Computed example of a mutant assay.
Amino acid sequence: MGPITIPEFECPVTTVRATIGDLPRLSAGGNDPSDALHRASRLSDVNLRRIRHSKPGGTWRDWPVDLRASCHMKVTGGTYPSVYGRMEWDGPSPTITTQCFGYGNGRFGHPEQDRAISLREASMLQGFPKEYSFLPDERTASFDKLGRLIGNAVPVKLGEVIGELFSAHVAKFRKDSTQH
């Protein structure tokens, strides 16, 4: 069997704005009554002050010193600049993790609204369609359980590309094995 040729894939960069920019506004702790997944976790008073000082693409280093977490004041704390970050509207999404609904867990601050991204926004940034349902309609979305499902999922586009590569490999293997 000869070498496998990897087909070319076009993967245009999709921005945060193009993915979630048309969703209804939410406040920290708020929810969209028409979408159980479009709900944002609450923020403590100090985290609400922190996010108001956060710039899209910036870090906690942009905050006044009195808002910085004590762990960031240590020498070792400076190695985590992405926690408490805001996404940038016109940039790609950061990697979506199981704790993506928490502002302090990465660069999961909404680019404009003073809150962390919602579960719906996280799922869409992971590549799931806006209408995708992870649970029966009558259930309340659990941040921990759904965050784990969304964050542990293979991004949809990556899954498609891997599937196409496997299909190309199987097709080539079948073709080569019938010629011998």
Rank of each mutant, 00 (worst) to 15 (best):
L149V: 02
G2Y: 06
N31M: 15
V16P: 12
L26C: 01
G21M: 13
G127K: 13
P24K: 07
D32N: 13
S93I: 08
T14M: 11
F128L: 11
E131H: 12
P24W: 08
R52D: 10
P33L: 07
A116D: 09
R42I: 04
L125N: 04
N31F: 10
I4W: 08
K145Q: 01
K130G: 02
A40Y: 06
M124D: 00
F9T: 04
F134A: 06
R39I: 00
I162Y: 14
R61L: 00
I51W: 05
H38G: 02
T5P: 11
G29W: 03
F128A: 10
F173H: 07
Y132K: 05
C100G: 15
C71S: 12
K145S: 07
P12S: 02
D32S: 08
D137M: 09
T98K: 14
P136D: 00
I117P: 12
S177V: 04
Q179I: 08
N47R: 04
G127D: 12
P12T: 06
L146T: 13
T15W: 12
I96Q: 08
S44T: 01
E88D: 09
R61Y: 00
G127L: 11
I6Y: 06
K145E: 00
T59W: 08
I150G: 04
T98V: 14
S142L: 10
R107N: 06
V83P: 02
T95F: 05
T76V: 09
S177Y: 03
P33E: 09
G163P: 03
S167M: 07
I4F: 15
A122T: 11
Y103K: 11
D66A: 15
K55L: 12
R50S: 04
E164G: 07
S44Q: 01
H38C: 01
G2I: 09
L67F: 04
V154E: 13
N105S: 14
P94H: 11
Q99S: 01
R86G: 00
A28S: 15
F101G: 04
P3W: 06
S123T: 02
P129N: 09
T15C: 11
S34F: 11
R17Y: 09
R148A: 03
R115A: 01
T15V: 07
